[in-house]
Amino acid sequence: MPDEASGPAPARAVAVREVPFRGGGFRPRTNSYVSWAVFAGLILLWEAGSRLGLISPIALPAPSQVLGALVDLARTGMLWKNLSVSLMRLGTGWVLGSILGIAVGLAIGLFTIARAALMQLTSALFAVPKIALLPLFIVWFGIGESSKIATILFGTFFPAVIATYSGVDNVDRNLIRMGQSFGLSWGSIVRKIILPGALPAILSGLRISSAIAIVLLVAAEMIGAQYGIGAYILQAGSLFAIDQLIAGVTILAVLGLLISWVIARAERRFLDWRS
């Protein structure tokens, strides 16, 4: 007899094997070193390909040339000139569109009248490609800044509306009922229960609308602008200055990364209560 403390021992005469482990996988993790290494590796590969003549400089200039174009752009002051007008358009349009969108989305989430009046309308207009409205905005507001800002504003407004009201719809009803049962005022319930509860959805809506905003910015600048990253890219393309074109695209990529980083920071700051 084996003693109690050592537990049951395997029988000697029977073949014994371990239970194979089969619970692994399906848990992808991120690793920032790997992401950066892939990034750097691709650029190195590209540079090497260009130097070895495997990549034609007419089709795709080397990263070093693109960097050269970027440095040129910075030295002549054109980088800041193009970037500042683009940022102004992007910032104004996105911020206004988001604020208005959150306000309207909140109204749809809270009031029957607003919901009945605006929900279907929002769904219908959300599907319209906003760049198709730029000519109309040019007729209305002229070729200047207003028409471009209006396009971005309009394009970011609808995602914000939809994200906000679905966020409000998904706030735990029990929490609202709890607020009512403690006699909280209407304003307190909205400010302290509904808005924080809808915030995750609102922030992911802003993430989507920021991408839409960059697309619309470039499109609007390509249609009618003297300065701006979009105008710069279009100009480079028509002059076959591929290095400048790629430089412009690089600026856009960095811009996208930057916005995404800011939103990730905001999520970490405001949504730290989630596990």
């Binding site: 029990n174 929490l175 009922r177 403690f182 006699g183 005022s185 307190s188 302290k192 229960i193």
Partner: peptide, 27 residues
């Protein structure tokens, strides 16, 4: 005067223990 205790606790996940208690006093 009439106060509930809920099955699912109904605590605001974004507020601390203290914040959840303050919530019902702030008004």
């Amino acid at each position: 005067p009439i106060t509930y205790i809920f099955q699912d606790f109904a605590l605001l996940p974004w507020r601390t223990v203290e914040g959840n208690i303050r919530l019902v006093l702030e008004d």
